[in-house]
């Protein structure tokens, strides 16, 4: 059974006559363990689509089932809990809490899930190690480079082993070396843990590691490129 089923997703903003129709009926199914890349020109609606799939926004119409849950029928509170337990996020600009150390940032969702302090610390350190930042546990975000911050953000997204990770242009603010590290991290994760990944990117080079590339234009998916099957 697919982990994401989206049917005829529409998203409009504002009211007539200033209504903007950003998503115009998007369909997509994502299999568990699949790595999907989304590409398209600026303004095509990639981010907007991603926000729908990742339960940060609600479609104006359509059907959306994520991990077997009809997320469109959830209350605000239930959506928050759903995001905590099922989804992981990597935002374009790292989005770490500036007052917290790297470790504490990663610990946030773990503690929220009810892990004990000790367990959360251990899991956080392991996640930070796995993104190659051994020993930087105590650093504040301001004491890390952009690439390192993004890797902490990935550690935060993966520490609680969510079923799906969403990444919206995770390399947009990074130099090519850091970008490569981040992309490699994501595809390693996909290979080793079988976590589902949906990633928006502008670089075809980074999209090539995925199973499938979707091309968006003007609020619809115009083309699909299957690179390799999902190995199960």
């Amino acid at each position: 059974m697919p982990i994401i089923i989206a049917q005829n997703i529409h998203r409009t903003f504002g009211k007539e006559p200033l209504l903007t129709h950003v998503l115009r009926g998007v369909d997509i199914t994502v299999e568990p363990g699949e790595f999907v890349a989304i590409m398209g020109k600026s303004g095509a609606g990639k981010s907007t689509f991603m926000y729908q799939l990742s339960v940060l926004d609600t479609p104006s119409s359509g059907h959306l089932i994520v991990d077997g849950t009809d997320v469109m029928s959830l209350s605000e509170r239930e959506r928050t809990t759903f995001r905590l337990n099922t989804l992981g996020y990597v935002f374009q600009d790292y989005a770490l809490v500036p007052d917290l150390s790297a470790r504490e940032n990663v610990m946030m969702p773990l503690l929220m899930r009810g892990d004990y302090w000790q367990t959360a610390t251990e899991k956080a350190d392991a996640a930070i190690d796995s993104v190659g930042l051994e020993g930087k546990y105590q650093n504040l975000p301001a004491e890390l480079s952009g690439g390192e911050q993004q890797r902490v953000a990935i550690a935060r997204a993966i520490a609680s082993a969510p079923k799906i990770i969403f990444a919206d242009e995770p390399t947009a603010n990074l130099d090519s070396i850091s970008s490569k590290q981040v992309i490699d991290l994501l595809s390693d994760l996909n290979h080793t843990t079988g976590q589902t990944i949906v990633m928006v990117t502008h670089e075809r080079e980074y999209a090539l590691g995925a199973n499938r590339i979707l091309y968006m234009e003007d609020g619809v998916i115009v083309q699909e490129e299957n690179l390799r099957p999902v190995h199960s």
């Binding site: 928050t80 809990t81 995001r83 905590l84 989005a95 946030m108 997204a157």
Partner: peptide
């Protein structure tokens, strides 16, 4: 505000 949004985004409850 942004960080508060992100915390909520990653599943941290408003009460926190």
């Amino acid at each position: 505000r942004r960080h508060i949004g992100i915390l909520k985004g990653i599943g941290i409850e408003r009460q926190v």
